[in-house]
Amino acid sequence: MKIVTILLIAMITFLTRYLFLHPGIPLRIGDKLSQFLNFSGPAVLTAIWVPIVFFQNDQVNLTYNNPYLIAASIAIIVSIKTKSVYLTLAISGFVFILLRVFIPATS
């Protein structure tokens, strides 16, 4: 059963990538639809990363012993200042590892 599910998921991810590359599909989609889809990247990615940062053990953790929250705040600041993906990953990754070493895990 899991295998069938995985195959169906693979079909969807492939179709979303292939649909508009297929020679028979007309080039244009409506302006409105393409403007709407323009927001799908920021919307989906944010809806994935925000819960990772704010939740610990299924509960919102807004305290200073949530290393995800502190390191993510630093990532946002570095990203705004430098716009560099690699600096953002490197600096906040380093901070996160330090915090994990010095803040005892709450779980």
Binding site: L45, W49, V53, A72, I80
Partner: peptide, 10 residues
């Protein structure tokens, strides 16, 4: 993952 997405979105 969180930080990759932050770096892509911001």
């Amino acid at each position: 993952i969180a930080v990759t997405f932050i770096a892509l979105v911001i």
